[in-house]
Computed example of a mutant assay.
Amino acid sequence: MDQFRGSGVTAFRFVDDLLLGAKRVIATMMEAFTTERVGEWAKWDATGRINVKGYFILGFPTETEDEIHQTVRLVRDLWAIAGSQPGTFRASAFEYRPYPGTPDWARLMNTGRYTADQLLNYTAVDLTSSGEEAAMRERDEFNFSVNIQLSEASVDHVRRTLIALSREQYERKVSA
């Protein structure tokens, strides 16, 4: 962190920290991450005047509505931690989609319930109300989906939650 500050870095994206969310989902995706550790990192970065962006995946296979709510609570906790510090924390959330060659792809294919064509059927999803909503137009996430309910939560629930988080992030940005 001191090296970042000394070099003039004011923003940092944790590309390796792509997988954040509910504890069970994190454990399945990457055991190194815990909500406690992520909170420590956010505070450490924000106190160092580093602007951090976290990526949050919703709709992970078998993820429950409660686990999605845990992820939302984590985002809000991170906003609160960073809110009292010189640096900032920005949340970026998107809908889960499987990619060939990943462990998730293999798990999904091994169930026999899906074909490769189904899992590769990435289609654009318009969360912007046809471009009318500024909070959604400023999203920098790729709004694509395979339009298959992979989580226990419905696709509609996942998308409503994405929209709510995006609106909150937008409001935080414009009111800062």
Rank of each mutant, 00 (worst) to 15 (best):
M1K: 10
Q3P: 07
F4G: 05
G6T: 10
S7H: 13
S7T: 10
S7P: 02
G8W: 02
T10D: 12
A11N: 11
F12T: 08
F12Q: 07
F12N: 07
F12D: 06
F12W: 12
F14P: 05
F14R: 06
V15E: 13
V15G: 11
D16F: 04
D16R: 04
D17G: 09
L18C: 08
L18V: 07
L19N: 06
L20Q: 07
A22H: 05
R24F: 05
R24A: 09
A27R: 11
T28V: 15
M30E: 10
E31C: 11
A32R: 12
T34V: 03
T34H: 03
V38S: 05
W41D: 03
A42D: 03
W44F: 12
W44M: 11
D45K: 06
A46L: 00
G48L: 04
N51K: 03
V52C: 13
V52Y: 10
K53M: 13
G54Y: 02
G54K: 00
G54I: 00
Y55F: 09
Y55G: 01
I57C: 08
L58P: 02
G59R: 00
G59C: 03
F60T: 05
F60K: 00
P61H: 01
P61V: 01
T62V: 07
T62I: 05
T62P: 00
T64Q: 02
T64C: 01
E65S: 11
E65W: 04
I68V: 11
I68K: 00
H69W: 13
T71C: 10
T71S: 13
R73M: 06
L74F: 02
D77G: 04
L78M: 07
L78K: 05
L78S: 03
I81T: 07
I81F: 05
S84K: 14
Q85C: 11
T88L: 02
R90K: 10
R90Q: 11
A91P: 08
S92W: 11
S92E: 11
F94V: 03
F94W: 07
E95Y: 02
Y96V: 04
Y96G: 04
R97K: 14
P98S: 02
T102I: 01
P103H: 02
P103Y: 03
W105Y: 08
R107S: 10
M109P: 00
M109W: 00
N110W: 04
G112S: 09
R113G: 10
Y114V: 03
Y114M: 02
D117V: 02
L119E: 00
L120V: 08
N121W: 05
Y122C: 01
Y122R: 03
Y122D: 02
A124V: 11
A124M: 11
T128P: 01
S129G: 14
S130F: 13
E133N: 12
E133Q: 10
A134Q: 08
A134F: 06
A135S: 13
E138Y: 15
E138N: 12
D140W: 14
F142Y: 14
N143S: 15
S145D: 09
S145L: 10
N147R: 15
Q149K: 06
S151G: 14
E152T: 11
V155Q: 12
V158I: 15
R159S: 08
R160H: 08
A164C: 09
E168V: 01
E168T: 05
E168N: 04
Y170K: 09
Y170E: 06
E171A: 13
V174R: 14
A176D: 09
A176W: 04
